[in-house]
């Protein structure tokens, strides 16, 4: 990990706001708004740290356009079958590792607690976001979002994005 390069408080504030709105949209079940956090051409990938650290490309969700994110939401809403559940996300340790031509390279830790219909809350996923953010847009949008999860064993299934 490289050291953070920016201590610009406004920059950090804007990025923190982006993460807050992002996780709130997912946790409040406003999935239709989720693709809007991304640029038209983007990369959204959920990948195990195991694969990522070995340089292996396989993820569990791999989308290279905002249209694919819309398709993911349509499928979750209307095709896929699973027990109702929701998450509470917690994002911390945000660091800006690069800032060039209006694009911030950002790393942050996340965890997602999954709450099921029987009333259990379990730590479902923990890892880091490794993102490229178009900070010159208002509001900023993700050009690339890698969700790199440390707990390789995915419990039951992953339907709702992280």
């Amino acid at each position: 990990m490289t050291a953070p390069i920016s201590d610009d408080q406004t920059l950090y504030f804007r990025i923190e706001r982006l993460y807050a709105r992002y996780i709130r949209a997912i946790d409040d079940d406003r999935l239709e708004a989720w693709p809007d956090f991304f640029a038209d051409t983007c990369l959204y990938k959920i990948i195990s740290a195991e694969n990522h650290d070995q340089g292996l490309p396989l993820g569990i969700i791999h989308a290279d356009s905002r249209a694919m994110l819309h398709d993911r939401v349509s499928s979750i809403r209307r095709a896929n079958i699973f027990e109702d559940h929701r998450y509470k996300h917690f994002v911390s340790g945000i660091e800006v590792h690069g800032l060039e031509a209006g694009v911030a390279t950002v790393v942050a830790n996340y965890q997602a607690i999954r709450i099921d219909i029987r009333g259990n809350a379990v730590l479902f996923s923990v890892g880091r976001y490794q993102d490229r953010i178009a900070i010159d847009r208002d509001p900023p949008v993700f050009l690339e979002k890698l969700v790199i999860f440390d707990n390789e064993r995915v419990d039951t299934l992953l339907a709702i994005p992280l």
Partner: peptide
């Protein structure tokens, strides 16, 4: 890699198999 979206723990055509056995 793109078609890997179909299968696996978050697969469009396989995620149900994660819960149906349960």
């Amino acid at each position: 890699l793109k078609q890997s979206n179909l299968v696996g723990p978050a697969g469009y055509i396989s995620m149900e198999d994660g819960c149906i056995g349960g």
